[in-house]
């Protein structure tokens, strides 16, 4: 299948993105990204995009359906608000990778910086290296699989996402606790590793999740609230 080449030394990111938005399918190769922002953002089709080099902020932001592969590093907000499809980078990402993602798969072969998967809402994130502090902060759904170590305050104020870490965790955030690794967790890890093309032994991971003690509503308090409302 033929492939379209976009050299960002010659064309603007806007031209690239407009082309990606106008095509329902096809393979696109992007050269010389040189840290440009918002490369391949807003895709909502079955296109396949290969980016040869490192990108700036919000690469593949709001991604849906297609595939974006970055052969390099990415800065803040990689695949932020991803809805579906796949975003895969061979290098490392800085802050807030996969932030608020609703679905799809984000693979970072290297390390992810702080707040990886912050407020994740269903996305699956697989990180080959380490994640920085406050990763999965306020996560609501989805899975974060970390083959390396996790920084401080992992899973702080977590709602319902699952976190699997193979290495050491510097500290757990408020209301995040270690949980039993169930057979369905081993299946999830196995499935995500395979989708990410990374090798590891599922049983080597530890699962972390919400202790559910920060949920403010307590049924025993309902009468107190009603009583207060009447006074």
């Amino acid at each position: 299948m033929s492939e379209s080449i976009f050299d960002l030394a010659d064309v603007t990111v806007r031209e690239l993105n407009q082309t990606l938005h106008a095509n329902e399918s096809g393979t696109f190769r992007v050269l010389n990204p040189r840290g440009a922002h918002a490369v391949a953002a807003g895709i909502n089709s079955d296109v396949e995009v290969h980016i040869e080099g490192s990108v700036g902020y919000y690469c593949a932001g709001m991604h849906q359906r297609g595939t974006v592969r970055v052969h390099g590093n990415a800065s803040t907000g990689l695949a932020e608000n991803i809805m579906s499809g796949t975003v895969h980078i061979t290098g490392s990402a800085t802050m807030s990778a996969g932030a608020t993602g609703h679905g799809g798969l984000l693979v970072i072969e290297g390390n992810a910086g702080s707040r990886c998967g912050i407020s994740m809402k269903g996305v699956d994130i697989v990180v080959g290296g380490n994640v920085g502090h406050m990763s999965a902060f306020m996560g609501q759904a989805g899975n974060l699989v970390v083959l390396g170590d996790a920084g401080a305050d992992l899973g702080d104020s977590l709602y319902e996402a699952d976190i699997y870490v193979r290495g050491a965790v510097e500290s757990l955030g408020s209301d995040c606790v270690e949980k039993e690794l169930r057979p369905e967790d081993l299946e999830t890890i196995s499935r995500l590793l395979s989708a990410a093309g990374l090798a590891a032994e599922p049983t080597d991971f530890t699962r972390y999740g919400s202790a559910r003690e920060l949920y403010n509503f307590n049924v025993d308090d309902i009468n107190a609230e009603l009583a207060e409302g009447q006074s």
Binding site: G35, V55, M95
Partner: peptide, 18 residues
Amino acid sequence: EYGAIATLPDVQHATVFE
């Protein structure tokens, strides 16, 4: 931002980290 670093000589062989 990485964009500033991308201008430097031999950057393709640099170790890049946050």
